[in-house]
C-alpha cells in the first residue's frame, strides 16, 4: 500500500513534465525539425525556479494563491484516481465528484489570480477559461455517469476497474464515444490545439496563457508544473479506459501506465500537428456538441 502510494507519487511528480517534452518532440517531428530535447521542460522549470518574482502593484495575496492551488490540486486529485492498475490510496463512495470539483477549485483561484492583476487581457483569458470549463464540465460528468452505469460503485477505483475490459465488449459504442468526448475535455482543460495554443504569442487569441502573463519566476514555474501534472492526471482517466490491463505485478503495471501516458502524449502531439486552431466563436459550439454526444452515449448505455 505504502509502496504503491509512493511509487504513484514518484511517477506523477517525476514524469509529468516529460509528457510535455514528448508532445513538443512529436510536433517537431511532424514539422520536420529536430526539436528541443525531451527533457527541456525540466530545464525550463529549473530556470524559472532560480529566477526572482516580479510583483505588480495592483496585486494582492490572491495573486500568490493561484499558483499554489494550481499545483496542489492535481496532486491531491491524483490520490483519488487509479493510475493504470495502481489503485488509488484514497478511495471512498463519491470520490469521483470530489475529483471533478477539485479541478474547479483550482480554476476558481487561477482565474481570480488573473483578475487580481487588473489587466484587461488577463480578465479576458479568465473569462474564456471559465466559459469553456462550464461547457466541458458536464461532459466529464456524463462520462463518469456512463462509467458508473457499467461499474458497481461510485469510487474511481471501481469506475475505472478491470471490468472495463469486459465492458468494451458489451457497451463498446458508449465507451468509445466517451473516450472521444473526454479527449476533447482533456484538450480544452489543458489548453491544447485546436482549442487553445500553448505557444501562441498573440494575447488576444490566448486563453490559458494570457491568464498567467504577470506571473514570473517560481510562481510561473508552479503554474507550468501544475499544468503538466493536470495533463497527466486527466490523461490517466482516458488511458485507463483505453487500456484496462491489470497484470498484478507492481512494476509491470507502472511500466504500462507510463507507456500509456507517452502514447497519449504522442497522440496529443499528432492532433496538435494536423489540426488548425479553431476560431474562438466555434469553441463553445464544439463543446456543446461534445456534451450532446456524451448525453447520447449515456442514453445508449441506460437502455
Amino acid at each position: 500500500m505504502i509502496v504503491t502510494t509512493l511509487l504513484r507519487l514518484v511517477l506523477l511528480l517525476a514524469f509529468a513534465p516529460l509528457m510535455l517534452g514528448v508532445i513538443a518532440r512529436t510536433k517537431a517531428a511532424f514539422a520536420g525539425r529536430q526539436g528541443a530535447p525531451v527533457l527541456q521542460p525540466y530545464w525550463d522549470l529549473g530556470r524559472l525556479w532560480r529566477k526572482g518574482i516580479v510583483v505588480s502593484r495592483t496585486t494582492t495575496w490572491i495573486f500568490w494563491a493561484g499558483p499554489v492551488v494550481a499545483v496542489t490540486v492535481p496532486v491531491v486529485a491524483s490520490l483519488l484516481l487509479p493510475m493504470g492498475a495502481l489503485a488509488a490510496p484514497l478511495s471512498f463512495e463519491g470520490d469521483v465528484i470530489l475529483f471533478v470539483y477539485l479541478f474547479a477549485l483550482a480554476r476558481f483561484f487561477t482565474a481570480a489570480a488573473a483578475l487580481d492583476t487588473g489587466s484587461s487581457f488577463e480578465g479576458m483569458g479568465a473569462a474564456r477559461e471559465v466559459t469553456f470549463a462550464c461547457l466541458a464540465e458536464p461532459t466529464l460528468l456524463l462520462g463518469f455517469v456512463v462509467l458508473a452505469r457499467l461499474a458497481d460503485g461510485l469510487t474511481l477505483n471501481a469506475l475505472l476497474g478491470a471490468h472495463l475490459a469486459a465492458a468494451w465488449g458489451s457497451s463498446g459504442a458508449s465507451l468509445a464515444l466517451i473516450v472521444v468526448c473526454l479527449m476533447v475535455v482533456l484538450l480544452v482543460e489543458n489548453a491544447r490545439i485546436p482549442f487553445d495554443d500553448p505557444n501562441t504569442h498573440l494575447e488576444l487569441t490566448m486563453i490559458h496563457e494570457v491568464m498567467v502573463l504577470d506571473h514570473s519566476g517560481p510562481l510561473l514555474g508552479l503554474i507550468q508544473y501544475g499544468a503538466a501534472l493536470k495533463l497527466m492526471v486527466l490523461g490517466a482517466v482516458i488511458m485507463r479506459m483505453v487500456l484496462p490491463v491489470d497484470t498484478g505485478n507492481l512494476w509491470l503495471d507502472a511500466g504500462i501506465f507510463l507507456g500509456g501516458q507517452f502514447v497519449l502524449a504522442v497522440v496529443i502531439g499528432t492532433i496538435e500537428s494536423v489540426m488548425a486552431r479553431l476560431r474562438l466563436a466555434r469553441v463553445p459550439q464544439i463543446l456543446v456538441g461534445t456534451t450532446l454526444v456524451a448525453v447520447f452515449a449515456v442514453v445508449l448505455v441506460l437502455r
Binding site: Q285, V288, L292, V295
Partner: peptide, 21 residues
C-alpha cells in the same frame, strides 16, 4: 442559432430512443 439546433437535435434523439421502447 447552431447551439439551440444541436440541443433540439439531441432532445429529439433522446426522445426517439425513449419512444421506441
Amino acid at each position: 442559432g447552431y447551439i439551440p439546433t444541436m440541443v433540439l437535435g439531441a432532445l429529439i434523439t433522446s426522445a426517439a430512443f425513449i419512444f421506441a421502447d
